[in-house]
């Protein structure tokens, strides 16, 4: 009898320890990054571009990476939206439940979702070479958009799937076409879910380094057109962390802190959005 109790206790203790390890790692990561990054953050850090080259120059800030990342992620997310929303609507409104096309497309999304971002990077590179482009903001935007499409589509698909059939039928019975129903009823009904999906994709896009390594390049300057290369926060961390100069590493720490805070903010925002706006949604 006692042995069974002991076994029970033993496993429970092991489980609690594992849980503590996982949550501890999360806290450890966040604390390490913030603790290293906060002292490095200053006004000049976030308002200036690096001086004398990002790898060697000991002065200046990371404005190039902040703006570059924002341009890139905003552009990519916008492009991904334009590509994903119509597809998801088509799958849910126009396709029959078990249509071949819908199943194939959903399968493709699943497969695309599982592809490592470095492979997207390599593919972006192939495309770039094929079109004779150089590393540029545009190439980065396209590659990151491709990476975001499956993430966004799957998230939005989950939400739109849940729209009750009666709601669609109510709209049809008023004489609305499917397009009108989609735009005016379904999108409105699912807005919080759609926004959450977009935010998740944005977070993934702004944090991804492997896909922009080949395609967006890196530069000290702030891009002024789509044809120029652009710096990004993840790469700012990656390149500048490896230098022997503490001053340059400060820029990496600052970038890491900013990126982490940004990601935490986006996660919380996505959560709040999906909770808050469900009030107005018909169940």
């Amino acid at each position: 009898m006692n042995k069974r109790r002991l076994v029970e206790r033993f496993w429970k203790a092991l489980m609690i320890a594992s849980t503590a390890v996982v949550i501890g790692c999360l806290l450890f990561i966040v604390v390490t990054v913030i603790w290293k990054g906060l002292p490095a953050l200053s006004l000049s850090m976030i308002t200036r571009i690096p001086k004398g080259g990002y790898y060697l120059g000991k002065e200046g800030g990371i404005l190039n990476a902040i703006l570059g990342s924002l341009y890139l992620a905003l552009g990519a997310t916008a492009l991904a939206c334009v590509l994903s929303l119509p597809v998801v609507i088509f799958l849910n409104v126009y396709c029959r439940k078990r249509s071949r096309l819908a199943e194939l497309t959903r399968f493709s999304f699943d497969v695309l979702w599982g592809i490592p971002s470095i492979v997207y990077g390599a593919f972006g590179f192939v495309l770039m070479v094929y079109f004779g482009m150089r590393t540029s903001l545009l190439a980065g935007i396209v590659t990151v958009a491709l990476l975001e499409v499956p993430i966004m589509s799957r998230a939005i698909d989950e939400v739109i799937k849940l729209v009750p059939r009666e709601l669609k039928e109510a709209s049809y019975s008023l004489g609305a076409t499917r397009l009108e129903t989609s735009l005016k009823v379904i999108i409105r009904q699912c807005l919080p879910g759609i926004l959450t999906g977009i935010l998740i994709a944005f977070g993934r896009g702004i944090g991804d380094a492997a896909s922009v390594l080949f395609t967006a390049g890196f530069t000290d300057r702030i891009p002024t057109s789509l044809g120029q290369p652009a710096a990004t926060l993840p790469l700012a961390i990656f390149f500048q962390l490896g230098t022997p100069f503490p001053e340059v590493r400060q820029r990496a720490y600052a970038s890491a802190a900013i990126l982490t805070i940004l990601i935490l903010f986006i996660s919380v925002l996505a959560r709040v959005l999906s909770r808050r706006y469900t009030k107005h949604v018909i169940r």
């Binding site: 991804d208 890491a256 996660s267």
Partner: peptide, 24 residues
């Protein structure tokens, strides 16, 4: 309480894990 934390962990960018790895 724990489920959102796990989602949070999965949302942290790869490079940040890298920074943590290098530092710790």
């Amino acid at each position: 309480f724990a489920k959102p934390l796990i989602d949070l962990l999965s949302g942290i960018p790869s490079v940040i894990f890298g920074v943590w790895g290098v530092l710790v």
